[in-house]
């Protein structure tokens, strides 16, 4: 996947990426950032960068067998592996918790 801007953010100890076109707005919640997508909302510890046209590689067949997360692939940004998520099926690690998040 090329020619797409990618929003890179950190949740837990993992760097995540989502197509910027899917992002609608950002909000602040208790100690973190809420990323509102077109169909869902994600929870991020911090937003790292917005990158244009990174190279996203789909995981291989062997890797997908052991890769539990439904994703669009992996990108390498500044030497770090970024998991590019599927906006329609974000991983549960990024789901909003029940604590009260305040959208802005």
């Amino acid at each position: 996947m090329r020619g797409t801007e990618l929003l890179v953010f950190v949740r837990g100890e993992t760097s995540w990426g989502v197509e910027r076109a899917e992002v609608r707005r950002f909000g602040v919640t208790g100690g973190g950032i809420t990323i509102s997508l077109r169909h869902d909302r994600l929870r991020a510890d911090r937003v790292v960068a917005m990158l244009s046209t990174p190279t996203v590689r789909k995981p291989g067949r062997i890797l997908r067998r052991f890769w539990p997360v439904s994703s669009r692939g992996l990108a390498v940004v500044e030497g770090q592996v970024v998991v590019v998520i599927d906006p329609l099926a974000p991983p549960p690690e990024l789901a909003l918790q029940t604590e009260g998040a305040s959208d802005e």
């Binding site: 801007e5 910027r20 076109a21 992002v23 609608r24 707005r25 950002f26 909000g27 602040v28 950032i33 937003v47 917005m50 802005e104």
Partner: peptide, 16 residues
């Protein structure tokens, strides 16, 4: 800074 960051992110989204 966070609010500025969020604002800048939102502004970037809006700009996009």
């Amino acid at each position: 800074a966070q609010e500025t960051h969020i604002l800048s992110l939102n502004a970037a989204i809006e700009a996009a």
